[in-house]
Amino acid sequence: MLRRIGMYLAAVALVMAFGGRAQAQDKLKNHFSDVANKVKAMEDPSAKREVLNESLNKMQSALSTVQGSPLVSKNDKEGIAQFKVTLQDKQDELAGLNGYAGVPDAQLNDFADYIVQDMEQAETVTISLVALLLIILIAVLIL
């Protein structure tokens, strides 16, 4: 119960801080861009993979947590489910699973950009402000 209240209060605080859904979306985009920058700043391909994989895993965990939250609507849950499928596809491609050959070492920087660009042009209209804020709260600030 305390955890639920805490999450709710944090979401409200973030609403106040960001002032709207567009800002929340931008915050999420910044997160993916930061990860891409981090990847591109590294030399070692295995370290790049680790950062990408860890980031995608964290986001998946955050989405699962928010999806199970009573604060989000049925529509949000559907939107989150679609978002998770998109991210899973990228995890599969990175790891060379489910029919993917895997991303070659030399293309990891481009792949990091691909994740950012795909996220930025995807419409997240089906996810409400509260759900977006919870995702940011968990994925960016807590995990």
């Binding site: 567009a22 979306q25 985009k29 910044n30 891409a36 930025e120 997240t124």
Partner: peptide, 14 residues
């Protein structure tokens, strides 16, 4: 401009 229109270039500039 009344929506999420932020994006980044490949240098990370917003």
């Amino acid at each position: 401009g009344d929506g999420g229109y932020g994006f980044h270039d490949s240098e990370g500039r917003e």
